[in-house]
Each structure stands twice: as structure tokens, then as C-alpha cells.
Amino acid sequence: MKRILSGGLLVFALAWAQGVGLEPVATGLDKPLYLTQEPGGPLLVLEQRGRVLALAGAKKTLWLDVRKKVSCCGERGLLGLAFHPGYAQNRRFFLNYTDRRGRTVIEEYRAGRPYRVLLTIDQPYANHNGGHLAFGPDGYLYIGTGDGGSGGDPQGHAQNPGSLLGKMLRIDVDRGDPYAVPEDNPFVANPRYRPEIWALGLRNPWRYSFDRETGDLFIADVGQNKWEEVDYVPAPMSTSGGWNFGWNIMEGNHCFKPAKNCKRAGLVPPILEYGHDQGCSITGGYVYRGRAIPELVGAYIYGDYCSGKVWAARWTGDRWQSELLLQTKLRISSFGEDAAGEVYLVDHGGGAVYRLVPAR
């Protein structure tokens, strides 16, 4: 077994690759960006231009169409969807998309119809829109925002406590109009900070997820020119907020601005990083809790959009260790998770969805 140490990413090449394969689930999609499952319903795929399609075998049916609202493409588009924890009773779900004016919009739907806009955030540039949404085990909605774009965070949003950009936001969609700020958000008593801010110092969080068993949070943050990273927040979220993940002072574990002798005090380093010899744009995934591949249970699955590599990471007792799981030729825009904990891979370039399965 070949051992490679690259940018702090310990890779045991092909350790699991012989035991994992990809099974096609859907093809013929238009720029797919995300997969999830409607509670009690079908798998859903988000297309960047603004359609949500339901999958049933080889059949695809239109579940929602917001193309008239959405600005596409590049890093803009329909970027995220999250179902309310009580969806079975209240039929509430939430979208994150770029509107026709280039702004980030968080919108609530009820019974398939638009109900209200929760939040609109101006975007100074066309890239780094973030875009993901996820409900935490605490029932609050987590909104990951990019730093506003261009390169290097020229307007300093990620470290600016008065800006919602470059942050992880945490809001209560069950109180307030249109929402309330949880009382245990870390900066509610600090007038310098927007109270919605739960964590800061992010460049462009491209997919994050909560481990369905432990409640731990994993955030994949896309790097600038050299380093991609995974940030980690242990449960419970009520006592873990307020962390600063370092951008644009740091890129991964390395000084960015300034390039040397930067001030690291108070910054939380990533648990994993890899250099641009391994890829160029990280895509976050899920801790595997399915049954199809027992060897993967408890491993965090993530990949890279540019290189098509898929890794699995575990805590070994004193550090996080990653293993190369698959080498593909896919443009991995997202991973997805179904109700059973099985994990899917979304291929943006090829317009397809695959399921991780035992190799045959």
C-alpha cells in the first residue's frame, strides 16, 4: 500500500478503492448541483438553472421550477434546498438561490408555493456565493455564505463582524418575522457583530453537513490558489459557535495575508487540507451512515471538483486521516444523502448522479 503525504493530507492510496464503486442513478441532467431526498418522498436533484427534478428509477419529473427567478451560471444559480424538520406536517422547505440582480436570496416555500423571503444579501462580485442550506440537530437553519467574491477577499468581508458574507449564519425560522436569532448565538450580546453570525472566516463554504449520528458539523471551504480545507465543529452547536476559521488571514494552515508571520491567535485550523497538486476546488460530503458499505460507516466522504478524487476521512484518536477512495473523471459538484444514509455523487459536467455502492 502506497503512502503519500501531501499538504497535511495523509493518503493511503487505494486502501478502500477496491471495495467501493459508483452505480448510475440518473443521467441527462442540466448542470446538476445538489441531491437530497424529500422526507417520505423521492430523491430530488437541483439543476443550476433553477429546476428541481424528482427521480424515480430512470424517470425524471419536474418537482419545482424557479428558473424565472434565478441568475445562472458560473457560481450563480439555484444552489441549495433544505426541508424543515417538521416537513411531514408543515410542508415547509427553503431555497438558496442567486436572483436576477445577483443577490443571494433565502426563500421559504410552503406546500410547494413561495411563502416569504427570509433574507436577501447583496453580492459585490459574481463568484463565491456559498449557497448551501442545512438544518442542524438543534432545529435551526444554517446558511453558509461566501466572502463576496473576486479573489483574496478584497473587501474584507470574512473577518468583518458587520457583514453577513464569509460566515456561517444560524437563524430560527419558527419564530419572528421573517425569522428570529437564537438566544444562544455567540454574538447576540456584541453590538459589533450581526447577531445571525454563528461562525466567521470562511472563503466559500461549498457544502457542509451534520453527522446524523453525532451531530458534528463538517464544512468544506474552497481555497484560493494553494490549499483546500475541511473545518470541523463538534456537537452541540449551542456551545460551539463563535469560531473563526481564519480566512483571509489564513488559507488552510498557511498564512495568506500577510504571506508570512500572520497572527494566528484565536483562529481555528482545519482538520484536513490538501494542496493543488491533488485538486483545486473542494466539495464537501457526508459522514457515511448507510448499510450498503459497512467499511465506510463513520467516515467523512468528500471530493474535489477539478480532479474528480473522492476521499474518506476518519478520526484515529490523535488526528484526522484521509484515504483516497476513488479516482474519477467526474466534475463533483456535490454529494447527497438519502433517508437511509446512503451517499450519492453529483457530476456537474456529465449531468449525472451516482450512488456509492460496494464494488462488484
Rank of each mutant, 00 (worst) to 15 (best):
L9A: 02
N244D: 13
P154V: 10
F93A: 02
G341E: 15
K69F: 15
N127A: 09
F210E: 01
G146I: 13
K329R: 13
D99M: 04
P270Q: 00
G162D: 02
K257C: 00
R103L: 01
V52S: 01
H157Q: 14
A15S: 13
R91Q: 09
S333I: 07
N253A: 03
F218Y: 13
F187D: 09
I219N: 09
L267Q: 08
P236W: 12
G166Q: 13
L43V: 01
V181A: 10
R194Y: 10
R291M: 11
G112S: 06
E295T: 12
G77Y: 05
P234C: 06
V45A: 02
G279S: 08
A111D: 10
P137G: 13
V268Y: 04
P236Q: 10
I249M: 01
T145Y: 14
L272C: 03
Y302I: 05
P236T: 02
A265T: 15
L133N: 05
H157T: 10
W243P: 07
R103S: 14
V357R: 14
D138I: 09
K59Q: 14
G21V: 12
R264E: 14
G176I: 10
D138F: 01
V45F: 00
D277M: 13
K2W: 12
V310S: 07
R289N: 14
Y274H: 05
I121M: 02
A299F: 10
R291D: 13
P32C: 00
G131D: 13
V20K: 06
L55W: 04
P195R: 15
R76V: 01
S209C: 04
F210C: 04
I143Y: 15
R291K: 15
I282N: 11
G57T: 11
L33D: 01
W206G: 11
G149Y: 06
D211A: 00
Q321S: 06
D277I: 04
I249E: 01
R175K: 14
L165E: 11
L44Y: 01
Y208V: 09
N261K: 12
A265N: 11
L296D: 04
W16V: 08
N244L: 09
P124Q: 01
P39V: 04
R291W: 11
D221T: 05
G298K: 00
Y232I: 04
G130N: 03
G19L: 11
Y87K: 04
D99N: 09
A26F: 00
Q37W: 05
K31S: 14
M250C: 08
S238C: 00
I197A: 05
C262N: 07
G50S: 06
G284S: 03
Y87S: 04
A88Q: 15
G266C: 10
G275M: 07
G74R: 06
L326R: 12
A54F: 08
F12L: 13
P32T: 03
S209R: 07
P269V: 00
T27R: 15
Y97H: 05
P236Y: 05
E196I: 14
P154N: 09
D304V: 09
V20F: 08
A340C: 08
S71D: 02
L5P: 01
K2R: 12
L14R: 15
Q48L: 05
A189H: 03
E23Y: 07
G176L: 15
A17F: 06
L10Y: 00
D99R: 02
A13N: 06
W63S: 03
V11D: 15
G303T: 02
P124G: 04
E213A: 10
P39H: 13
R170S: 02
G275S: 12
D304I: 02
A158G: 12
K31A: 14
